[in-house]
Structure formats: C-alpha cells, structure tokens
Design a protein around this nucleic acid. Structure first.
Lengths: 150, 150
DNA sequence: TAAAAAATGCAACAAAGTTGCAATACGTTG
DNA sequence: CAACGTATTGCAACTTTGTTGCATTTTTTA
C-alpha cells in the first residue's frame, strides 16, 4: 500500500481507529475517481476476505465522520466516495455534485460549481437550504470516446 | 374521484390501460406537492387494499412511460411524483429539481431553475449531459414555521 | 504489557422490491 | 354486445441489500 501513512493520518484526523480493513478500504476509495458500491469494494478487496458487515460498518463510519459521502444510485444502491477536505474535517453537509454516466453507470464526484441561482430563489420561498447535491446524467468522456470511435 | 376523466385521458395518452388501481394511484400522486413512497401511497389507498406488487408495477409503468419520475431518497427508498407534461408526453430525461426537507423528510418537486453554469463547464470536459437533477437539502417552509414558533 | 474501548466476524433477521404463474380485467374487433 | 387476445392483477416464494446482537479480537493509552 503506497500511501499507508497518509491513510493513517487521515483516519486519526477523523478520530477513527487505524485498522487494516479501514486502510484497505481507504486505499480502494482513494484510487478511483468514481464512487464505488459495497459490491465494488468487496470485489476489489476479495483477496483480503473482508466480512460484509464489517465493510458496511466501515463505510458507515467513514460517512458519519465526514471522511466519505454516500450517493444513492438509480438502482437503489449506495455508492461511496472519499470526501477529502483540503484541510480540517469538514461537515457532512457540504455541497456535492455528481455525474452519473447512463452508459457505464459510474458516478463521478465533482466539486460543486458555484454560480447557480436556484438556491436564492428557493430561500426566498421559505426553504432553508443547508446542503445541495447537483446530479447530472449523460455520457462520461470514456464512454463518449468509445461510442464516437465505433 | 374528482378528475377521473383527466386521469383516464392521461393514461391513454401514455398508452397505459385504464384500470381502477392506476386511477387511484394517479389521484394520490396528483393531489400532493411532494414525492411519495410506495409506503405512503399504500397508506393513502389502504381502503382499496391494493396489492404491493401491483403498486410497484403500477409505479414502474408510470415511470417507464414518463408519466411519473422516481427520486432515490437518502434512506434508499424510491419516491414517485407525477411528471405532467404541459402538452405532449415528454421524455423521462427532462430536468428536475427536488427539495429534501431534513426535518419531515418530504421531498418537494420543483421546476428546474435555469442559470447555472455547471452544465457548460462539464460539457467542456467531455461529459455529455442529457438530464440533470438538482437536489437541495434543508428545512421546508412548513417545518421552518413550526420551529420558529416554538 | 495490561486494561478499557472499539472493531470484527458470524448468524439471524428485516426491509424493499422482483419473479413466475394462474386468474382476472381491459379494449378491440366483428 | 359478445368473444377473443393481450395486459394487468394477486399471491407465494424469492432475491438483494443492509442491520442487529453478541461473543471474540484488536487497537490504543497509560
């Protein structure tokens, strides 16, 4: 594991105990630009034979403390992605943007762009907004390239 | 049922056969500003004793033809809301905005406001965008009023 | 290194939704 | 308006996803 020390530091920063399982899961999540499901992670960590309950609990722990965030997919699964803060542990309530590829069903995590006005309009109408998720559907660059070339 | 004829016309427009169950479900969905779950609808239609499988199939049929759309909630449930087109049957792929109240967990369906630039930025990066969902979390006017008054 | 607290692994359980199939209802055609 | 083909319904069984309880093991701190 390349960044073991980084992962350990990250866990400690979020007041999570350092365990092998958590390091493995962090490693998997840190090395993909897309959000992964419990099944994806299980598959990637097959050689370590991680218990399904432990993995669920690990992912929930990551989510609860703000180290990762969960996205619900169209097909009723949870996907998890690291939510690495630039510095201090950030709140779970911060803004996310996700791109859902309709071809390969991968979910890309994107930094939330500023500059939309929906927020202001809704606040005028009495909605108190604490976080927002902006979800785009379409075709990701990878699939788009494939289709273009055929 | 007040708008029975409207519902029948709507079903026919979407090439769905007119059945009692579908009329009841349409009636429930048409008379709420929030998206409803299978459980919500079951409860509201308790007197008609609608089979759970039939309700799932009804909701899926509505979604498939574009009469309704599905939203995945934070707690891994589906919520359904009518997607009444102004005129002709519209594609399922059109844009939605949802407001999720963190107090009462209702999901409000909102028309998608224009004027955000995330779309453009992503398209530059090679993402082909076909629909977008913008999800806001916070407190809805109703709950906000309650909390303010206490 | 010993003790407290937290994480793990296993089995059993729960919730949400699907599938197969026989019975029923819809709607079209004559 | 009767009869037929097709779609929908209702039921039981099943699948998938995730949770709970509890005994055991590991981590951390002193």
């Amino acid at each position: 594991m390349q960044n073991e020390n980084l992962y350990k530091e990250l866990l400690r920063r979020f007041r999570l105990k350092v365990t092998l399982t958590r390091l493995h899961v962090l490693d998997v999540l840190a090395n993909t630009p897309v959000a992964l499901s419990h099944a994806d992670i299980t598959e990637q960590l097959a050689e370590y034979d991680i218990d399904k309950v432990t993995l669920y609990r690990t992912l929930n722990a990551f989510t609860k403390c703000g180290l990762a965030h969960k996205v619900a997919t169209e097909d009723r699964n949870w996907l998890y992605a690291l939510h690495m803060p630039d510095d201090a542990p950030s709140e779970v309530t911060s803004d996310h943007a996700h791109f859902v590829c309709d071809e390969c069903e991968r979910i890309y995590c994107l930094p939330m762009e500023t500059g939309n006005n929906t927020r202001d309009i809704k606040e005028e109408q009495g909605f108190v907004i604490r976080s927002q998720e902006y979800r785009l559907h379409g075709t990701c660059p990878e699939c788009h390239t494939q289709f273009s070339q055929q």
